[in-house]
Write a protein that binds this DNA or RNA. Structure first.
Length: 463
RNA sequence: UCCAGAGUAGCUCAAUGGUAGAGCAGCCGGCUGUUAACCGGCGGGUUACAGGUUCGAGUCCUGUCUCUGGAGCCA
């Protein structure tokens, strides 16, 4: 394996004259009379290592196998490059070709491919510049998420992937079953008899870990989850996946103001971290994907977010003098066009909208003293829309019961959730960040399917 | 799921209802240092699939599939 100090990233930091080994995959090769130039990458950094092969150095049968896509291992000396384009290069003395890649059938060319085509070859696209950069940024983002919470004493918890409560109200669920779907056992009334199913009742993939995270928060104060979630919605957009990753912090002794403040600190921290550690990758995104991406991130990392209530947002929209496709009316949810107008045109930066009408929000959100709104917050950012959704949770048992009833939900499955309010309740709050939405914001990538290695969408779960 | 657009060579795209083409990639050759290298040559097609209209369909009609954009749902 490649050990620390041996990555191509590390090789660039070695002094000229060092004899070393470089391993990776061939990006491209150029030939002149008597000399060949091979660029290799091991994914450790954006920049390829240029290997120079002078005529006669390698046997012809080795040389002819060094083609785009091949896996190679060079030995050589690090030398100053006489030509512009790279400060150092490897002067090859030997080469082992671990795996050739037949050039006439290897699908990745050295020139531009569409994102749609690359998506069809997800087993090879990590070797493309764009996807190497995307997955390095994804790694940095993941690390920054943990570091932010760990530095603040949050406990990393794991909430279940499989759940038997189908009543969270957060969209369609994937059912998990070991029954024979062609011929399930049936009851007298022909309904499926789930007592024979694996869990003895219907089970689903979780759409959120929030309710369980609240359990841990009411024991360990500050906790967070970071894992996959699943939505069986038939949504076909550049912003939705059926399987995506979500970060959900949950804090006891926390109200909505604290919640909003943490969300802002959190976003700014991870943006700063990626700016500081992924400079070359971000420069590439700015050059080839989205020109404004770096300046936007620099700006957002420092500027405080705009904060308005839902009621104020409605007033702003009404006063805009625009004609909306969907009417602006207190009591109905903000549409995509409204959110975009607020964050992209009015404020031109992230906007936190709080205190939404109770009838359009989930049962667990804390009812305000005005009885009409709940302590919900959405963080909206230009180009993406909603990137964070959160709330202060209803900690009063009577009010929570009323809200369940109001939302048409039975109390029984929530017996433990209600009991948390009976035994040692405290005000608490949390939010959810969609990791892939954040990735789109960080990279400027236009389609969410291109910021996760193996996207799952309706009708598509290949690889 | 709804609305709109698209599907032609490995990739990106041309082609008034009348002989399916180009650039790139690949292959062969050339060039003493290339940087999306460059120059010359060569091969490359069930026009997404199934029907239909027509003397004749890549082109028009119907259906299906896939992709893209917008909307809804949301992170």
């Amino acid at each position: 394996m490649i050990k620390p100090g041996e990555y191509i990233r590390d090789i660039f930091a070695q002094p000229v004259g060092t004899v070393l080994v470089a391993r990776g995959w061939v990006k491209t090769r150029r030939d002149s009379k008597g000399i060949s130039f091979v660029q290799i990458s091991d994914g450790s950094c954006f920049t390829d290592l240029q290997v120079v092969i002078e005529a006669g150095t390698l046997p012809p049968e080795t040389l002819e196998q060094i083609t785009t896509g091949a896996c190679v291992e060079f030995t050589g000396t690090l030398v100053e490059s006489p030509a512009p384009g790279q400060p150092v290069e490897l002067k090859a003395s030997g080469c082992t070709v671990h795996g050739a890649a037949h050039p006439s059938s290897y699908p990745l060319q050295k020139k531009g491919h569409t994102m749609e085509f690359l998506r069809e070859i997800a087993h090879l696209r990590p070797r493309a510049n764009t996807f190497g950069a995307v997955f390095r940024v994804r790694n940095a983002l993941s690390y920054a998420i943990h570091r932010f919470f760990q530095d603040r004493g949050f406990i990393y918890i794991h909430t279940p992937i499989i759940t038997t409560s189908d009543c969270e109200g957060a969209g369609a669920l994937f059912q998990v079953t070991t029954l024979d779907v062609a011929a399930p056992p049936r009851l007298a009334d022909n309904a499926v008899d789930y007592t024979h199913d694996f869990f003895g009742k219907p089970a689903y993939l979780a759409v959120s870990g929030q309710l369980e995270a609240e359990i841990l928060a009411l024991a360990m104060a500050n906790v967070y989850t970071f894992g996959p979630t699943f939505r069986a919605e038939n949504s076909n957009t550049p912003r939705h996946l059926a399987e995506f990753w979500m970060v959900e912090p949950e804090m006891a002794f926390c109200d909505l103001d604290d919640d909003v403040e943490l969300a802002q600190e959190f976003l700014q921290y991870i943006i700063r971290y990626v700016l500081d550690t992924c400079e070359a990758d971000l420069a590439f995104f700015a050059k080839r994907i989205e020109p404004t991406v770096v300046e936007t991130l620099e700006h957002v990392a420092q500027a405080s977010f705009e904060r308005i209530t839902y009621t104020e947002a409605i007033r702003v929209l009404e006063a805009s003098g625009r004609s909306w496709e969907f009417p602006v009316e207190w009591g109905s949810d903000l549409q995509a066009e409204h959110e975009r107008y607020l964050t992209e045109e009015v404020f031109r930066r992230p906007v936190v909208v709080t205190d939404y009408p109770r009838q359009i929000k989930a049962f667990y959100m804390r009812v305000n003293d005005d009885e009409k709104t709940v302590r919900a917050m959405d963080v909206l950012v230009p180009r993406i829309g909603e990137i964070i959704g959160g709330s202060q949770r209803e900690e009063r048992p009577q009010v929570l019961r009323e809200r369940l009833k109001e939302c048409g939900l039975p109390e029984e499955p929530y017996w433990w959730y209600l009991q948390l309010r009976e035994y040692g309740t405290v005000e608490h709050a949390g939010f959810g960040l969609g990791v892939e939405r954040m990735m789109m914001y960080l990279t400027g990538m236009k389609n969410i399917r291109d910021v996760i290695p193996f996207p799952r969408t309706p009708g598509s779960a290949d690889f």
